[in-house]
Design a binder for these strands. Structure first.
Length: 497
RNA sequence: GCCCCCAUCGUCUAGAGGCCUAGGACGCCACCCUUUCAAGGUGGAGAUCACCGGUUCGAAUCCGGUUGGGGGCACCA
């Protein structure tokens, strides 16, 4: 195999989509596995819908995932890389123009003076007759005089590429041989708008050829467009790259994953506390497998195992539960200091939202890591787990203070007795090992199940029924605050009674 | 409507003619561990391999058809 050059060509018309990220990942993996080059190209020719904010989101997201590109455009603070630039299509207009001129000169393309209204009407007519939409070719054989008349009329022409009849076939690396008759392509296609800007199907071919892309790895939604591209490669006299069409990522109803039915923006997953390791691992396994029973794999491990042979043909439903499981696997594998690092912005968000009073120090969080590491499906869950430690007071629901097997009076007694037992442990000895024996003894002496007593205490000091282990929780809280919260809980319970 | 693609537990998948009385994972259920929640361990339910027909001594695997699903058919990408 010659030099492997692959690319991801996002369009900055929206935030980084999960499907784009997956396609980028597969291209990256293919490049890394084969020692090839991974190119990033921005397809920004839809000026009306493109924005630099989206562009930034896409670049940041890819970067965050660890999908570094070998060649790509210059971005804030970073110079362009690669010898095939520029890598923004709006900066390559001269090339599309030149390619279009060549096609025009060779009569492979022709000016089309049809207006939007005329084309819409034509399409509507075909649709009403239950026929497939297709351009009639009305402007295909205009005489010079007719063209001059349109021009005189002030009409600006679009440029159409002639789709010649015939069968177009290619060997897709995941689907095998695919054959499509050119007559099913919808007629001659517009490659340049009336304003002179090029269209996707044209730019993608001109650029893939110019950038010497060897393998086009993209979503299955482009499978039936591929013959158009092949025809263009041929007309331009360029080598045709290999194609690999990946299965689509699906909504739960098995339609193409969409913003309407699923969470599609990578940024939202990042904001919720998914890790790059978990997301990459999950995305790689959506439509690909190692062929073995290995599942928890790093980006490098995946790259070393990656191949197109094990890419699935059928679409894959996005399963958030499985993603959360994998994410938890990766959170548990993080070094404690690394976890502290990753948790910092999520704790800051808790402060910003007013859910905790202050940002915990790194040291504080580090001592809590053993208590929370295996309890975080996503980093964003950290607030629920340890928020009670960094809040002046906790909201207490009197009902929760009474364990299921107890009544309010017992709970009141239990909390009072616990307050006394905990208070009896001096500040110097305030350790988990010192707290557990007296509280167990207390439960035994009163004939309570230890779990019930512990639950009442847990709710009193954390406000929740689910929390890290109780004695560690008390220690983390500190003697004074633990006692104060028990007092407050007793008060709340007494008031409710 | 036309064209193309696809089809194994609810979901992600293993499976390249005999190793399949179809394996793993998520989720679910039970039990163990246990102060709650997790994590971990053990076990379980869950797939007539969409259906029909062929090829073959033998088919989840090959072929044909049917059905179902999806995608594409723009002066969007």
């Amino acid at each position: 195999m010659t030099d492997v050059r692959v690319r991801i060509a996002p369009s900055p018309t929206g935030p980084l989509h999960i499907g784009t990220a997956r396609t980028a990942l597969f291209n990256y993996l293919y490049a890394r596995h084969h020692g090839g080059t991974f190119v990033l190209r921005l397809e920004d020719t839809d000026v009306a819908r493109s924005s630099t904010a989206y562009e930034q989101d896409i670049l940041d997201g890819l970067h965050w995932l660890g999908l570094t590109w070998d060649e790509g455009p210059g971005v804030a603070g970073e110079a362009a890389r690669g010898g095939y630039g520029p890598y923004r299509q709006m900066e390559r207009l001269d090339r599309y123009r030149a390619a279009a001129d060549r096609l025009l000169a060779e009569d492979r393309a022709y000016p089309c003076y049809c207006t939007k209204e005329e084309l819409d009407a034509e399409r509507a007519r075909l649709e009403a007759a239950r026929l497939p939409p297709r351009y009639s070719g009305r402007c295909a054989d205009l005489t010079p005089a007719e063209r001059a008349a349109f021009e005189a009329d002030g009409r600006r022409p679009a440029l159409r590429f002639r789709i010649e009849p015939g069968l177009v076939a290619f060997d897709d690396l995941v689907r095998g041989r695919v054959e499509i008759d050119a007559s099913a392509l919808g007629g001659d296609m517009v490659i340049l708008r009336a304003d002179g800007t090029p269209l996707y199907h044209f730019t993608v071919v001109v650029d893939d050829a110019a950038m010497r892309i060897s393998h086009v790895i993209r979503g299955e939604d482009h499978l039936s467009n591929t013959p158009k591209h092949i025809l263009l490669f041929r007309a331009l006299g360029e080598a045709i790259p290999a194609f690999a069409h990946l299965p689509l990522i699906l909504n739960p109803d098995r339609t193409k994953m969409s913003k309407r039915k699923s969470q599609t923006a990578i940024g939202d997953y990042i904001a919720q506390g998914f890790t790059r390791e978990g997301l990459v691992n999950y995305l790689a396994l959506l439509g690909w497998s190692t062929g073995t029973e290995e599942e928890v794999l790093s980006l490098d491990e995946i790259a070393s195992r990656f191949d197109l042979d094990h890419v699935q043909k059928g679409g894959a439903v996005f399963d958030r539960e499985r993603l959360e499981w994998l994410n938890g696997q990766w959170i548990r594998r993080l070094e404690p200091v690394e976890l502290v690092d990753r948790l910092r912005p999520f704790l800051a968000a808790e402060v910003a939202a007013g859910r905790i009073d202050r940002q915990p120090t790194d040291d504080e969080v580090l001592t809590l890591v053993p208590l929370i590491q295996e309890r975080l499906p996503v980093l964003g869950a950290v607030g629920e787990l340890i928020g009670f430690l960094f809040r002046e007071r906790v909201e207490l629901d009197p009902a929760l203070l009474v364990p299921k097997r107890w009544d309010a009076a017992t709970a009141l007694q239990g909390l009072a007795a616990a307050r006394e037992a905990i208070g009896a442990v001096g500040p110097v000895r305030f350790e988990a090992d010192e707290l557990e024996p007296p509280l167990r003894a207390l439960a035994e002496a009163r004939g309570w199940k230890a779990g019930d007593l512990f639950m009442a205490i847990r709710v009193a000091v954390t406000g929740r029924t689910a929390a890290p282990p109780l004695f560690d929780t008390l220690v983390a809280l500190g003697r004074d605050r633990a006692l104060a919260r028990l007092d407050a809980a007793i008060e709340v319970l007494a008031a409710a009674a």
